[in-house]
Write a protein that binds this DNA or RNA. Structure first.
Lengths: 327, 327
DNA sequence: AACGTGTGTGTTAGCGCAAACATGGCACAC
DNA sequence: GTGTGCCATGTTTGCGCTAACACACACGTT
């Protein structure tokens, strides 16, 4: 920086002003400084800048389940949007959801140079691990319906489950079975509750819930049970992967989809249009989530504004795995 | 830090030593300092530490295609392994693979506080964008077979394609069709070359290559063409998603898999065990890649050692989509 | 003429930490 | 007793940058 200043024959402060794009520098001076920077190959040192300003222009994303389609979409959407806002993104991947592993990652986080955190994890994990974020650190939680001290942003999953269930009822099914996600998942709970309430509101009987762990395997074994029950005409799986397992089970059991049984998923993973048959599902807007998340974080970091929780609408995607029940 | 020093009645330097885990501190002093840190809630300031040491303990991962299964696995494997080595990971997501977008991301990178970079992109993109990394910045490329100035790490994809092709030949197929990935993909090229060479080595005829873009849709349309050709008895798709599309096409064309036609994938995505039928494919070890990548980077950052390129072995996963040709 | 007001630029100080060097105490050999 | 070396700990300094202030000068206003 000193070299640049000397070469352009200005003070260090003027170089600093140019490098930060401040306006109160005469055009000719600015050009001289910029030329000097290029000649020397000057790059501002982020560490020094951060030390002085107290800001790192960096946000952390803590993701518990990088294997799931949703969290990946979230992470990339946040990374893209953060780049637009001039922030970088530090990815803190959890080895597992064991309380100790969560606690360890949070300890590491405290030493990270971040101005804010996006939490991509089930909120109860935080409590189980007995950890908390460093006080005063802005954060948002990407998870719906939790009582969190931080702003919460999520897809409107309840709306998704409602739309899905209603779609099946509208097709003429007497009721809809639900293959829920694991009990400790908040998302699973919300989807299940919305499913139940939609049935109740329509006066349809509420059958017992089946439960899987998001994996195709768990969908497969639940699917075998469902296939064996002649009363079942429609199934809503809590995610696409489990729906895939159900499709496989139905085929093996000789039950036609959607002729004998309608199957719906949830998430709209890119593959779902190519399942057998192409899956009717619920599409979530991850890029909008990412944008909402980053703007909430930046608002709090830069202007101290707290955002109120927000739910991003979802959309029904009707393909070929659902149809009217056989008369 | 000053408060901690006062509370523990030691010098700043001793606090610094304790906080970095240096050994030359007496046990009793260390305990006093640690207690004081806890009481005050002291957290070392990364920016100051980085400013002083010239190291950020942070590596960047530049990923071009966060949507593909492989890159996601790579990113999380690297993040996990980096955490173990005491590094954090900054994710630089590319908006697109347009040269301008790539160039923009690289400009941003230059201002990032990173000690090293892992490049998760096709090498030719760098050249097209006309960008280069800041000189002297350690980097590794996760991409095989490129002539790169940086160490290259990858799964042994040639081995995978060889194993897959040989598996089909061993089952008794006269030859094997190949649905390759896009032409601009190095991975696609390697897989295709290995497939061709395996056929040639076995004295099998080399049929024309079909080409897709990694998507299930492209697999589907290629699958329809393949299904119409009665000579085809075995197909190797360059990834699982395209294989999924082929499976769908075969089913719609009334061709049994593996009875009429054997289909193989490549990647072993978690869903592939639940495709219809469960897919025979090639499994890649992403965690080993992540570990190799981080250790290569750390070796260069901390000790200036250049690692030689390394290929991580892959494994054949035989499920139910392949079998002997109908006699 | 005296006084604000604004604009472009320079000077000073210090952000929090760790390297380099300094110190002082103790164990041991001679 | 004196020297030697080693260890735990303290003091000083500066990493690269920017906020705060200082200043000089060109204006317009009273």
């Amino acid at each position: 920086m000193l070299d640049v200043a000397r070469l352009a024959d200005v003070s260090l402060q003027t170089v600093s002003r140019v490098s930060r794009g401040r306006t109160n520098v005469e055009a000719s001076t600015r050009d001289r400084v910029l030329a000097a920077m290029r000649e020397i190959g000057y790059r501002p040192n982020r560490a020094a800048r951060a030390l002085k300003s107290g800001r790192f222009r960096n946000i952390a994303v803590i993701a518990s389940v990088m294997s799931s389609y949703g969290s990946i979409q979230w992470v990339s959407a946040i990374a893209l949007e953060a780049a637009r806002a001039g922030y970088s993104v530090t990815l803190v991947a959890l080895e597992s959801t064991e309380p100790q592993a969560v606690a360890r990652s949070f300890d590491a986080l405290a030493e990270h140079a971040v101005d804010g955190v996006a939490l991509l994890l089930e909120h109860h994990m935080l409590e189980e691990a007995g950890v908390s974020l460093p006080p005063g650190l802005p954060a948002v939680v990407l998870d719906s319906g939790v009582a969190s001290p931080y702003p919460v942003i999520d897809n409107d999953q309840a709306m998704g489950a409602r739309l899905a269930t209603q779609h099946l009822l509208d097709l003429g099914h007497r009721t809809v079975r639900h293959l829920a996600g694991p009990e400790d998942s908040r998302a699973a709970e919300i989807r299940e509750t919305a499913w139940r309430e939609t049935l109740e509101a329509a006066g349809a009987p509420v059958p017992p819930t089946d439960r899987g762990d998001w994996s195709p395997e768990s969908g497969y074994s639940a699917g075998l049970r469902l296939a064996a029950d002649p009363d079942v005409t429609a199934v809503l799986a809590a995610n696409d992967q489990m729906a895939l397992g159900i499709l496989r089970a139905m085929r093996e059991a000789g039950r036609d989809v959607p002729g004998d049984i309608s199957v719906m998923g949830f998430d709209d993973v890119p593959e779902s249009a190519n399942y057998q048959p192409p899956l009717t599902t619920v599409h979530q807007s991850f890029d909008r989530i990412g944008a909402a998340c980053v703007s909430a974080l930046v608002a709090e970091i830069e202007r101290g504004e707290r955002t109120s929780p927000s739910l991003v609408p979802v959309e029904l995607v009707i393909r070929s795995s659902t149809g009217p029940p056989r008369a």
